[in-house]
């Protein structure tokens, strides 16, 4: 029952994207049209997807590297967490100047880098969480059994950290997937992502197109979390 309720907004969005001439007090649309779905272009979806995947991999790798240094230095932890707390507009405007000087604006790479800034802290939190629950004695035990560095990772530490890594990856993906201000500023309009396509239609009140794009927008994170959850169960 509960699972079913979760899909209600999705059903509503689907109906809204296909409905036309739907006036109060009609409960059900009078006519249907595929117009809104014609407005879903490939380029923004592709850009959003490649960026989010790259940021996901990048954030998790950085998290693994940083988490190792946490134990020694609390300052690193604070510095990383601050990145998540920065107001996005202020941070992006400031970064825009810096990125301009480095020649990173108006490019896919620049946008990927700027997405890493809010995405990394989430990955770090997830990875740090699962690492703090990890019993280091297990590593010692594996070592006494003759396991090398690689084998320890492959059979002991890796599986133990996997849930944290997966959660971190999903967080990083979603954070990048939903960036708007930073993409618009650093991408200079050259790197068009789904949120950028969506915002215009939302503002002009073209609800059908906004609903269609919202469904696409919802699709990737939902599929990703379903996939991660499956991985859990198996």
């Amino acid at each position: 029952m509960v699972k079913w309720v979760v899909w209600l907004p999705v059903v509503f969005l689907l109906v809204r994207s296909l409905a036309t001439r739907w006036f109060w007090p009609a409960v059900w649309p009078g006519e249907w049209s595929g117009r809104a779905w014609g407005a879903v272009r490939g380029e923004p979806v592709w850009n959003s997807l490649t960026l989010a995947l790259a940021v996901m991999v990048g954030a998790v790798l950085i998290a693994l590297l940083l988490v190792a240094s946490f134990r020694k230095n609390a300052w690193v932890r604070w510095a990383v967490m601050t990145m998540a707390l920065l107001p996005p507009l202020a941070a992006s405007v400031g970064l825009h100047g810096a990125f301009l000087q480095l020649g990173l604006t108006d490019s896919w790479w620049g946008v990927a880098l700027v997405h890493l800034i809010p995405a990394t802290p989430y990955a770090v939190m997830a990875v740090a969480g699962s690492l703090s629950r990890f019993d280091e004695d297990l590593v010692a035990q594996a070592r006494t059994l003759g396991a090398g560095r690689w084998a320890i990772w492959r059979y002991v530490k890796g599986p133990a950290l996997a849930p944290g890594l997966a959660t971190g990856a999903v967080f990083a993906f979603v954070v990048s997937w939903s960036q708007y201000v930073s993409t618009a500023l650093i991408g200079g309009g050259r790197v068009v992502t789904l949120p950028m396509a969506l915002v215009g239609y939302q503002q002009s009140g073209d609800e059908a197109v906004a609903a269609a794009l919202s469904l696409v927008f919802l699709g990737a994170p939902v599929m990703l979390s379903v996939w991660v959850e499956r991985g859990w169960e198996s």
Partner: peptide, 28 residues
């Protein structure tokens, strides 16, 4: 096409670019 939700975003982008000394090669 460089899409924008508000034209103000383009203007603030240009102002930042001017401050940073990017005098050519704009994306617009």
């Amino acid at each position: 096409i460089v899409p924008y939700g508000h034209t103000g975003e383009v203007v603030s982008k240009l102002i930042t670019e001017k401050a940073a000394g990017k005098t050519s090669g704009s994306s617009v």
